[in-house]
């Protein structure tokens, strides 16, 4: 009987410890502020699908027709935004993306299923913003190819003869192989001019001078 008593006491202590550890665990369990909405492989699939890339022409059409369901977001700093921006766009600098009021705004847009189009001066500038929003789970985010530079026509090179639209920045601009072959061997050798020797041909005297006077 005494034996069971000791065992029961021991067991009750064990239960106390167990419950205490569980409680501490739950209390210290911190919920992260932000969580990824998509895994890396899902994100990679979205990148490769290229579905989220909007051409400048599409954007112009949307702005011109005032198509509902789109919102343009300028990720540059306020000074650049003031200099010129897409009509009806909102300025949210990239540094402020995770501020409370902005995440609330993004959530609201996601609920209303409004497509967000992020843009910077060029596509590279907006790329990280687009990737961050995408990975956070905002599936309604698109990116403007060519950025504001192309939209406004400032970076358009009218002398370019390439048939690929210039806002496809990932296309090779030149034929790399051809350039390397044409330049192989170092410097370009200048042709040396060979001067022909000018040999003056003397006229033969037709007649021997015959005597003097």
């Amino acid at each position: 009987m005494k034996d069971t008593n000791i065992r029961t006491n021991r067991l009750s202590i064990a239960v106390l410890f167990f419950v205490a550890i569980l409680l501490i665990g739950f209390i210290t369990l911190s919920k992260p502020d932000f969580e990824y909405g998509f895994t890396t492989s899902e994100t990679l699939d979205q990148i490769l699908s290229m579905e989220d890339e909007m051409t400048p022409d599409e954007a112009k059409e949307i702005v011109f027709d005032e198509t509902p369901g789109y919102k343009f977001i300028d990720i540059r700093n306020p000074y650049e935004y003031v200099k010129g921006n897409i009509e009806g766009s909102v300025n949210i600098p990239f540094q402020n993306f995770l501020a409370d009021e902005n995440t609330e705004f993004f959530d609201e847009m996601l609920e209303d299923s409004i497509t967000l189009v992020v843009y910077g001066w060029d596509q590279t500038e907006a790329n990280s913003s687009w990737m961050i929003l995408k990975q956070l789970g905002y599936s309604n985010v698109k990116i403007l190819m060519g950025g504001y530079g192309f939209y406004s026509g400032e970076t358009f090179d009218m002398y370019s003869e390439s048939e690929i639209p210039q806002y496809f920045v990932e296309e090779p601009k030149y034929n790399f192989l051809e350039i390397m072959e044409s330049m192989a061997g170092g410097a370009i050798i200048e042709e040396t001019k060979v001067y022909e020797k000018v040999v003056p041909v003397r006229k033969k005297k037709k007649s021997v001078v015959e005597g003097g006077c």
């Binding site: 990824y36 890396t40 994100t43 990679l44 990148i47 596509q123 590279t124 790329n127 990280s128 990737m131 990975q135 920045v169 990932e170 296309e171 090779p172 601009k173």
Partner: peptide, 18 residues
């Protein structure tokens, strides 16, 4: 590196996230 710098940056972001 890639032809431009978009793909390279996407690779950078994924690698950093991991």
């Amino acid at each position: 590196f890639s032809n431009g710098d978009i793909y390279a940056e996407q690779a950078w972001m994924l690698a950093n996230r991991m």
